[in-house]
């Protein structure tokens, strides 16, 4: 499995994601510069977290105009895999590759801490290594992670099982108390209708080494590496 990590001006989780894929998981991994359009034959594109273009105007709003995003759109259009983490998720929403928008966190403050995620659907290329209902401990770090969408579209997401992760407590109970940012239905991660593009606010690359307090993020990367459902 060959991974490509996109680098925008202002990306700041690019090196962290690269480190996990390359040094921890031993995968062939390359950086993809925002002004290039060559995806270098990668299997999976990862758009990492950060503040692309300073998040000026709106998180992810400027990144969608970059040359690399055109190629990512084509890549996704061919049914190949794309993952957006945090700012990457916002960029994919802005680009129209993923549903919904992100509002400011309900608490109106940046939140950085470990949270728990309930894995809702493990029949996907992103979660095949998880058990259904598995609880993952992975940190979040964002200002705008309050997932919002119209009731009709929300119903469709639920119906199509596009919601892969919801914020929960350590036992997997999904409740308002376990919701760190006000996201509708505690949504932390969703796919597109076709199921080949994932966006998630938590940072699996920050939870892939024992030293950092959790290795649960590896389940997501391992699912991609195993290549099931794809």
């Amino acid at each position: 499995m060959k991974f490509g990590v996109v680098v925008f001006p202002g990306s700041n989780c690019d090196h962290d994601t690269f480190h996990v894929l390359k040094s921890v998981l031993g995968q062939e991994t390359v950086f993809l510069w925002h002004q290039d359009s060559d995806l270098q034959d990668v299997d999976t594109v990862i758009i990492p977290g950060g503040f692309s273009y300073g998040d000026y105007l709106r998180s992810g709003a400027i990144a969608k105009f970059s040359p690399i995003l055109e190629s990512v759109r084509r890549h996704a259009g061919q049914g190949k895999l794309v993952v957006g983490i945090c700012n990457g998720f916002q960029i994919l929403q802005e680009s129209g590759l993923l549903p919904g928008v992100m509002l400011r966190n309900a608490g109106l403050k940046f939140v950085c801490r470990h949270i728990y995620l309930l894995t809702e659907n493990n029949q996907t290329p992103f979660t095949a290594a998880c058990q259904k209902g598995q609880v993952l401990k992975i940190p979040i770090a964002h200002n705008d992670g309050n997932f919002f969408i119209s009731p009709e579209e929300l119903a469709k997401l639920e119906e199509n099982q596009q919601i892969l992760f919801r914020y929960s407590d350590a036992q997997g109970h999904v409740s308002p108390a376990a919701n760190p940012n006000g996201s509708l239905h505690n949504i932390a991660g969703v796919t597109n209708r076709r199921g080949n593009v994932l966006g998630l606010m938590p940072h699996p690359e920050r939870a892939s080494e024992a030293l950092l307090g959790s290795q649960d993020g590896r389940f997501i990367f391992q699912s991609l590496i195993n290549g099931k459902y794809h």
């Binding site: 977290g49 940046f110 950085c112 690359e205 307090g213």
Partner: peptide, 16 residues
């Protein structure tokens, strides 16, 4: 206070 700071980026924070 510290939850408003990203204290994990760069994935080196071995004691939070």
């Amino acid at each position: 206070v510290y939850q408003q700071y990203d204290h994990m980026v760069r994935t080196n924070t071995a004691i939070l």
